[in-house]
Design a protein around this nucleic acid. Sequence first.
DNA 1: CGCTCCCGCCACGGA
DNA 2: TCCGTGGCGGGAGCG
Length: 853
Amino acid sequence: MEVNCLTLKDLINPRQSRLDFAIEDGDNAQKENIFVDRSRMAPKTPIKNEPIDLSKQKIFTPERNPITPVKLVDQRQQTEPWTPTANLKMLISAASPDIRDREKKKGLFRPIENKDDAFTDSLQLDVVGDGSVDEFEKQRPSRKQKSLGLLCQKFLARYPSYPLSSEKTTISLDEVAVSLGVERRRIYDIVNVLESLHLVSRVAKNQYGWHGRHSLPKTLRSLQRLGEEQKYEEQMAHLQQKELELMDYKLGERKKDGYPDSQDQQLLDFSEPDYPSSSANSRKDKSLRIMSQKFVMLFLVSKTKIITLDVAAKILIEESQDTPDHSKFKTKVRRLYDIANVLTSLALIKKVHVTEERGRKPAFKWIGPVDFSSSGSGYSLEIGSLAAVYQQKIEDGSQGKAVATSKRAMPPSGSLDPPAPLPGLSVDSEYCAHPLAHQVFSVAQLDLQAFPTQNSLHGQVGVSAASAASDVESLKPALLASQPLVYVPSPSLLMLYGRLQEGPAPTSGSGVPADRPPTPSVQKRLGEERKPQAEEPAPKRQSRDYEDSPLALVMPKKPSEATDLTSAKTLSNGRSGAPEDIHMEAQASAAEEASGKATANCLTSSEWGNPSRDTEMEKSSKENESTKEPSLLQYLYVQSPAGLNGFNVLLPGSRNPQAGGAPSGQLPPLGIPCMVLPSPTLGPFPVLYSPTVPRPVSSAAGALPGAGPVHFGVPSLGSTAHLLIGPTNVVNPKSSTLPSADPQLQRPRSLGLSPEVPGPHGIVQPGSPGCTAHPGSAVKPQQVSRALSPGGPSFCDLGGPRVPSVAVNAVAVEQTPEVTVARFPVCPVKHEGPSGGCCALETKLLFSCQSVP
DNA sequence: CGCTCCCGCCACGGA
DNA sequence: TCCGTGGCGGGAGCG
């Protein structure tokens, strides 16, 4: 896709040229990271095998040299078992005590890797679609498959983003290495970067403690502060101005002087609260860690949030006092790539290209939280970021198809303009295809506190998006706007969100797209969309860059038709709404994770894989016709408690095409049709949504007439909703989930529900037993309410005073022992624009919904 | 051909 | 001395 190119000027003066910028996504670059290449993969049929046989491999493997094993290429290939099962086997085998030994053998690694890949794909977030294909097709692990970025994703997938405070997760480097099928050396690369951001800390030899992202905002804040102190910004400016001769190391100097590295190093330690890192601190600090922090600082102090590698390298070199020499520069750049890959996996940055006279230069754009300074805002942003990241990947994966996008100019930094998010958004449909999208992140709710920003984002409205939001990540306002979102922080529930739109309803303020026919076709789209959405948890951001953007979900379009960006754009522009609509946000709670594996699961399902793509494509084409509607997509993402296996689910909501119109029943078009929750969750489950709210408060003009958006927690919104729980409809999960209407959805991707195999981890499919609720067991509204209100983050909490209650239209809940499924009919209303109905949320929840007509 | 960056040699330093 | 760490850069994959 698209590449966006920025000019140096832009970087320097963001404001000015924003329009001009073209930033490329890194697509290329990223692509590499992306999971798979289908193409590449030869279609070999895999030899599946027993691949796992470690034993064999061992045999082959020459030695035992632990450290650097000899690789056997051949073996690998042979071994690759792409079957999931095989993978499991491997894992299991690996798990054994011997592991280490085995590790050593390369053979193992390789196979394992493969396995992992498959594994991941299917299960994990990242995975995204490719997986499916991969599984079958993959053959050899291409270089990309072995990339640090991918590896990092796999690594991250193993642990919850926001682990419960109670849970302490320790990471055994050896185990991780084995399970991921890589040498330990690689794990160090990842861990060192994560450690620099305090996501992990060294506990003991070979052992790291996983902290998750809870303290990330704090860490970033600290880094930002430091970066400011160091005047990195100035340095960057100088370098950039200079045009950057590559080699001017000197420029940087000045700053250097003032600030000794030592300070930086201190940084490292800085916030760490808890973990005694004992020795860790002592040593020289590892440059990778320091470099990582410095690199992050550069972004945090940068106005544009885009840093070219060469500038970063120069600055870092300077600081390090080294004499600048070219080789040093090269080495530095190499290291920066390593760091960047990890940061990309964390969804903090994304690759872009800056174009200057000389040509394009590789650069990275910060897509992480910007505002963390204040308090909570970072949080949401973060989420968004994640989504973005994934999205990118997806894109990459998908390849180009995606949107080409990008052309649009969006201002890079957020701050500036408020404007326009919309158009840009347009997005491409291709997204849909992406598998990546699958990934879901879980976010913890924790701290969500303030999210003003988000609100704005969602709503677009207001706030400048500036800050964080502004970033691309932030979102695609437009999209968001159009959709109603629900943000639920409850512990178990991560996210939800969706959009709705119904054909008819759509409103839009801005113009929305009227285009979309509400037709049934929509559903199809939905299906497609869903996938993506699912993946994206955080989709908000990106409006601008589409490509990157995470949001991908949204775009449904397909290439053929929509094809071109242009076309697409136009369409979309009209309103952003339409097609893209979908977004999700999600959050996941920590708990899940454990399942890390599980996590993304649902979404991820294999479907996404290549195959799915195909289907998607097809669909898309179909869709096109019908539309881009956004259908409503709403998803809820729930993390499952451990028991479930990490079952997280997201269900798409839409069911009826018509929804919009008349809701027959209750379900309006959009809503979120279902949610699957682990029963335990209910208690805490904070929110829900209500479609019905009568009026839109803020929503803007755009709002459809009938509908009112509901706002939760938003202060401004003010409206209070009532919590209503409608009569329940019990829905069979299946049905709900898979709307009959859309067969398509089901198929492949729908949200990950795919029937196919979930993956080792056990993703739950809607249909699957796990998911399914018993009909009988529907929960009564009351129950629900109960759950909602009191519990943890009850509404009250959420809303606080501001939003005391929420109205819910109808909810049906079913429970099985393990799972509860709730259905929420939502009205399809769209919000539009900025004002649109989005609501933000407050701290905890946000939601915007619309009512039904 | 140039950008990326995997791979793994090898050194450092604690136990 | 062993081994965990991780700096470093050759060179290969890929677009």
